[in-house]
C-alpha cells in the first residue's frame, strides 16, 4: 500500500561483490575477497576516512552502503536530530564475536571488542554523517522489508524525524548483503512513492 507523503529517494543494494544504486549497477569486483571488495568500495566512493580501516567487516559494509546511498544526496539541510537510522540483520555481530573470542586466549583485543555489538554499524554511519536521530537495530532471520521500512515510515509519519536511512546489513564470514533505502518526506532523487512492495521490489 502506498503511503502518501513518504518517498524512497535512493536505494543501494550490495551483494555478490557488486553494488547497485537506484536499480543501476555502480560497482563490481567479483574476484576480490570480502575485505578487498569493501576496501575497493571505500577507494571508489570515498577514500578520505581513515577510521574505515579500523572497522569490522559489518561496519565497513554498512558504512560503504551508506556512502553509495547518499552520494549526490546531501543531508546537510537537516538538523542532526532529524535523520534516523533503522537497520537489521540475521547474524548480529557473530563474525566479530568469533574473532574477538580468538584473541581472548592471548591478550583480548580492545579494537575488536568495541565491534562486538551489531548496532555499532549505526554508530559508525551516524558519526560519519552527523546523524543524531532515532535509531534501532533488529536481529531477524531474514530481511523483512515490510517491517523495517514500515518502522521507518512510522517515524516519518509521527514527525520524529524528517529522513531515515533504513534497511538490511548482513555479514558472516564471506557472506554479505546490504539493502539500504533513504526515506524522506520530500521527493528528490528517484522519488518513488513509498510502499513495502516497492522496497521489496528494489531488494529483489
Amino acid at each position: 500500500m502506498i503511503k502518501t507523503g513518504i518517498y524512497i529517494n535512493a536505494s543501494c543494494i550490495i551483494r555478490h561483490h557488486s553494488a547497485v544504486k537506484n536499480g543501476q549497477p555502480v560497482y563490481e569486483e567479483r574476484h576480490a575477497d570480502l575485505p578487498d571488495f569493501l576496501r575497493a568500495l571505500y577507494d571508489r566512493f570515498n577514500g578520505q576516512y581513515p577510521k574505515f580501516h579500523k572497522m569490522d567487516l559489518l561496519s565497513k559494509l554498512g558504512w560503504a552502503a551508506t556512502e553509495i546511498l547518499l552520494q549526490d544526496m546531501p543531508m546537510d539541510m537537516y538538523a542532526p536530530e532529524d535523520t534516523g537510522v533503522i537497520l537489521a540483520n540475521a547474524s548480529s555481530s557473530l563474525d566479530t564475536d568469533e574473532k574477538y573470542f580468538e584473541t581472548v586466549h592471548d591478550i583480548a583485543s580492545p579494537a575488536l571488542f568495541v565491534y562486538t555489538l551489531p548496532n555499532i554499524v549505526i554508530g559508525e554511519i551516524s558519526i560519519r554523517h552527523k546523524f543524531k536521530g532515532e535509531n534501532a537495530f533488529f536481529v531477524q532471520e531474514r530481511f523483512d522489508t515490510a517491517f523495517i521500512t514500515g518502522y521507518a515510515a512510522q517515524l516519518l509519519e509521527s514527525g520524529a524525524v524528517k529522513a531515515v536511512v533504513c534497511g538490511w546489513v548482513e555479514q558472516y564470514h564471506a557472506g554479505h548483503e546490504a539493502a539500504f533505502y533513504l526515506l524522506e518526506t520530500t521527493p528528490r532523487g528517484m522519488a518513488l512513492p513509498f510502499s513495502a512492495e516497492t522496497a521489496e521490489k528494489l531488494y529483489r
Partner: peptide, 13 residues
C-alpha cells in the same frame, strides 16, 4: 581511547 588500549597491548605483546 581505543588506540590507547591497543598501544598498551603493543607494549605487552
Amino acid at each position: 581511547s581505543i588506540d590507547a588500549l591497543e598501544l598498551i597491548v603493543l607494549l605487552q605483546q
